[in-house]
C-alpha cells in the first residue's frame, strides 16, 4: 500500500514532465569536433586504390563510387559505375539519400585526396556513416592501377604480388590508356587476384 503511494509520488510527476516537454527529435548523432579530430588522426576514412579496384573487379554490389569533381571533369573521365556529386553541391537535399544511408559503402574520389576528403569531413560531421575516401584520388589511381611501376626484382614478394594485382586490375579496368568511356566496365578476363586483405568493416549499423 505504502510502496504504491511512493511509486505514484515519484512516477506521476516524472510522467507529467515528460508529457510536457517537446520530444527530442535529433535523429542523427553529430560528431563533436574532438571526435572528428580523432577520426582524422586515425585516417580510418581512407581506402587504398587497390581495395577500390578489387571491389570494382569483384563487382561488389555494396560499392558506390562518388565523383566529387565538377560535371565537366566527370564527363571526361570517371571510374566505372560512379555517380557525380560535385563538392559544392554536396548539401543539396537531392543527394541526401546517397550520402546518408546504411546499405552501401560510399567512396568519394577527386583528382587528389583533398576534395574527396572535404566531402567526407562534411558528411561525417553531419553524423553520416559508410562514407570513405579513395586515398590519392584519380592521380594516384592512374599512377598505381593504370600504369603500375614494375618493382625491382629484388623487391619483397608482397611488392611483386601488389604489382601483379595492379597490372591485372589495370587491364580489367581499362588498360594503360585512360578510358574516356566511363560506366562501361570492360569484360576482359579477370586479373590474377592475389587475395588482398578484406575490405574495411563497415562501421555502425545494428
Amino acid at each position: 500500500m505504502k510502496a504504491r503511494l511512493i511509486l505514484a509520488a515519484i512516477i506521476i510527476p516524472l510522467g507529467m514532465i515528460i508529457a510536457a516537454v517537446p520530444e527530442n527529435t535529433t535523429k542523427q548523432f553529430r560528431l563533436t569536433a574532438n571526435e572528428l579530430l580523432e577520426e582524422v588522426k586515425d585516417g580510418t576514412q581512407f581506402l587504398q586504390p587497390d581495395e577500390v579496384a578489387d571491389m570494382l573487379i569483384q563487382k561488389d554490389p555494396t560499392l558506390q563510387l562518388i565523383d566529387v569533381r565538377d560535371a565537366d571533369q566527370y564527363e571526361k573521365f570517371s571510374l566505372p559505375n560512379s555517380i557525380n556529386i560535385p563538392l559544392v553541391d554536396i548539401l543539396n537535399p537531392e543527394w541526401k539519400e546517397y550520402i546518408n544511408q546504411d546499405v552501401k559503402l560510399n567512396v568519394f574520389y577527386s583528382n587528389g585526396t583533398k576534395n574527396a576528403n572535404e566531402a567526407w569531413m562534411i558528411t561525417r560531421q553531419l553524423g553520416f556513416e559508410n562514407n570513405y575516401v579513395m586515398l590519392g584520388g584519380l592521380n594516384y589511381w592512374v599512377e598505381t592501377i593504370m600504369n603500375p611501376e614494375k618493382p625491382a626484382s629484388t623487391s619483397p614478394d608482397e611488392e611483386i604480388a601488389k604489382y601483379n594485382f595492379r597490372k591485372g586490375a589495370g587491364a580489367a579496368l581499362g588498360g594503360a590508356a585512360v578510358n574516356t568511356q566511363p560506366s562501361t566496365m570492360k569484360k576482359s578476363s579477370k586479373p590474377p587476384i592475389s587475395k588482398r586483405k578484406k575490405k574495411k568493416k563497415v562501421q555502425g549499423g545494428c
Binding site: 500500500m1 504504491r4 511509486l7 505514484a8 512516477i11 506521476i12 510522467g15 507529467m16 515528460i18 508529457a19 510536457a20 516537454v21 517537446p22 520530444e23
Partner: peptide, 22 residues
C-alpha cells in the same frame, strides 16, 4: 500524440490497475 503523453497516460492506467489489483 507525443510519446511522453502516451507514457503519462500509461502510468495513470498502470497505477489504476495496481489499485484494482490490491
Amino acid at each position: 500524440t507525443s510519446r511522453g503523453l502516451i507514457t503519462f497516460l500509461i502510468i495513470l492506467v498502470a497505477l489504476g490497475m495496481f489499485w484494482v489489483g490490491e
